[in-house]
Structure formats: structure tokens, C-alpha cells
């Protein structure tokens, strides 16, 4: 690995100052993505600012009934936290569906938000990749694209967003708190990740010197009845081909509340607004679920390797909603 200077930041002010003053510096959390990318030479920081000593590792209930998750809460702790299990089961399930237990013990919530794509052409430094090297092209578009996105794609990039956690956060209307030397601001998860467009190397709304300090979950009357379903090539420890985060409320046979987001199929954690619109007020039936899924996937564009995901996503959405209707919450 390329040598770098190391600084362990004792407080947030020191951390954000250190990165603001040094354009070659990067924050280091659990290391499960950044250390790997540094070893392959895709990330090449001159200075690594270790933030794991910062006091940002608590999950706290807020007065409004929502929850504030510190950016350094480890993924495994988040999934196991009693408040998350009971009130936001979709988030527990999504986190548990990702990576391995070892990685979840290391990976932080902030790091998961900033996790980079697992597109094999992004990782292969001999391949053309506009995300890794702007302007170099995209070998995935004409290559092996079985794992790639069908929603939110551009002519520059079709890399799928890899996170499970973020899919649940998208469905839960999470808000990301970020801090820099300029102060604190809040970014809704829906605008945190950017679609690739012509600049696939710009992946989030953050400036390089902004530190994720927390994720806030607003109180949600429907989140207690929520589930995550992940479809993948192996039973465990694999990235999603398709995943669905869903929360559902049904009264007198009609859908009175719904939140839906998709993973594995899109370039960003994909809030399924079209499907939600189709579902609200509709009878809670298999037919409505299917029609909502079709509405969401209508703009999907597949390539020879990944067109199968479009029908797979329709079925996964339908099946997840059906299970929520018939079995209810996993909490």
C-alpha cells in the first residue's frame, strides 16, 4: 500500500480542520472499503485522518420519537439495537443482509453511506471506468454487466450502488448530518447520493472535507411494519441482484401508508416514488402490488447481461409487499 501520514483525531473539530487544510487527506472509519481501495491503489490519500476515536458511536432516541444514529456506530451494533429492531425492522434486516458479521463489526454507518461501487471494472485498474478515471470510458456497458444497474444509469456509468443499509434508509426518509469547518448541515438521504450523469466520479452531495456525523431517522407510523428482502446469487454474503425495503400500512383493505426503496438495480439507493403513488389508496392486493412494481420499473433500461433484473425487481417488490400484508413485521 502507498505510504501515507496518519493522524488520529481526538475531536470532530480537529478532524474536519485536518481534512479541510489538506486536499490529499481522507477520513478513515472502519476501513472495510477505504483500506481495500487503498491497497488496490484506487484511493491514494497522502494523509489518513482516523475518526474512530470521535464520540459518535451512540444510537439515541429523540424527543420526537425518531432516532439519531452516530456515524461511528458499527453496522452490527446498529442492526442489533433494540430501538432499531422494534421500530425500524427494515433497517435491521437490511444491515444484517449485507457483508459478513466480521465486516459488520468493523464497518461504520457513515462509511456504509460512502461505500463505493463493487463494479468489477471500477476495481480493475486496467479497465476503462469513468468513475475511477473520468473520461476513460465504461467497459461495463459493453462488457459483463450482470450485476449492474437498470435505473438511474447514464451513457457514462451503469455501476450499481452496493449498500443494503442505504436502501432501508431511503425508505425511512433518513437525514444525514454532516459537519465541516463551515458548520453543520443536514442532507436528506434522497439527495445525498448522486446519479452518475456525465460525472460518475461525483458520487455524493458532500464536499471532500465534510464529515458525516450522524444519520437521523424521523418517527414513522408505518416503519414498525417493514421488511427487507434481498435476492442474490448466493444465500449469504453476496451483493444484491435486487433488494427491496418496504413499509406498509393497510386499513379496511386499502393501502393507507407505504414506503418503498430498491437496491441492486439502481445507481443510487432508489426510492420507489412511482410505486408508492400507485399504491396509496389502492386495494391491498397482489394485483395492486404488481401494478405498482410495473410503474416503478417502466423507465428501466437493461443491457444483455442485466435485463433479467427488471422482471426480478417487479417480482421482488410484489413478494415483499405480499409478505408484509400476510405476515406483518419481523419485529
Amino acid at each position: 500500500m502507498r505510504p501515507f501520514a496518519y493522524l488520529s483525531a481526538p475531536d470532530v473539530a480537529t478532524a474536519v480542520r485536518a481534512v479541510a487544510d489538506d486536499p490529499g487527506a481522507k477520513f478513515l472509519g472502519g476501513g472495510t472499503n477505504l483500506v481495500d481501495l487503498m491497497r488496490t491503489g484506487i484511493e491514494r490519500p497522502d494523509t489518513v485522518v482516523d475518526i474512530t476515536s470521535l464520540p459518535l458511536a451512540e444510537v439515541e432516541e429523540r424527543p420526537d420519537g425518531g432516532v439519531r444514529i452516530g456515524a461511528l456506530v458499527r453496522n452490527g451494533r446498529l442492526a442489533a439495537h433494540p430501538l432499531i429492531r422494534a421500530r425500524y425492522p427494515v433497517l435491521s434486516q437490511a444491515v444484517l443482509a449485507g457483508a459478513s458479521a466480521q465486516l459488520r463489526n468493523m464497518a461504520t454507518v457513515g462509511g456504509n453511506l460512502l461505500q463505493r461501487t463493487r463494479c468489477p471494472y471500477f476495481y480493475d485498474r486496467t479497465a476503462a471506468c469513468n468513475k475511477r478515471e473520468p473520461g476513460s470510458g465504461c467497459d461495463a456497458i459493453g462488457g459483463f454487466n450482470r450485476s449492474h444497474a437498470v435505473l438511474g444509469v447514464s451513457g457514462s456509468c451503469i455501476a450499481a450502488h452496493p449498500s443494503d443499509m442505504c436502501v432501508a434508509l431511503a425508505a425511512l426518509d433518513a437525514v444525514v448530518e454532516v459537519e465541516s469547518v463551515r458548520g453543520v448541515r443536514r442532507v436528506p438521504l434522497a439527495s445525498f447520493h448522486r446519479p452518475p450523469g456525465d460525472t460518475p466520479h461525483v458520487e455524493t452531495d458532500l464536499s471532500p472535507d465534510e464529515l458525516v456525523t450522524a444519520v437521523e431517522l424521523p418517527p414513522s407510523p408505518i416503519a414498525a411494519n417493514s421488511r427487507y428482502r434481498k435476492v442474490r446469487d448466493r444465500a449469504s454474503y453476496a451483493f444484491a441482484l435486487v433488494s427491496v425495503a418496504a413499509a406498509l400500512e393497510v386499513r379496511d383493505g386499502a393501502v393507507t401508508g407505504v414506503a418503498l426503496a430498491l437496491g441492486g438495480v439502481a445507481t443510487t439507493p432508489w426510492r420507489a416514488r412511482e410505486a408508492e403513488r400507485a399504491l396509496l389508496g389502492a386495494p391491498a392486493t397482489e394485483e395492486s402490488f404488481r401494478r405498482a412494481a410495473e410503474a416503478e420499473l417502466a423507465p428501466a433500461t437493461g443491457l444483455p447481461g442485466n435485463t433479467f433484473k427488471i422482471e426480478l425487481a417487479r417480482r421482488a417488490v410484489t413478494a415483499t409487499l405480499r409478505r408484509l400484508l400476510t405476515e406483518g413485521s419481523p419485529a
Partner: peptide, 13 residues
Amino acid sequence: GERINSCLALAVQ
């Protein structure tokens, strides 16, 4: 007591 992947852990951390 918690299991981790030591290959992705910097010793200094």
C-alpha cells in the same frame, strides 16, 4: 472479543 477481518484493519487503529 468481537470478530474482525485483520487484513482490512490497520494495526495502528
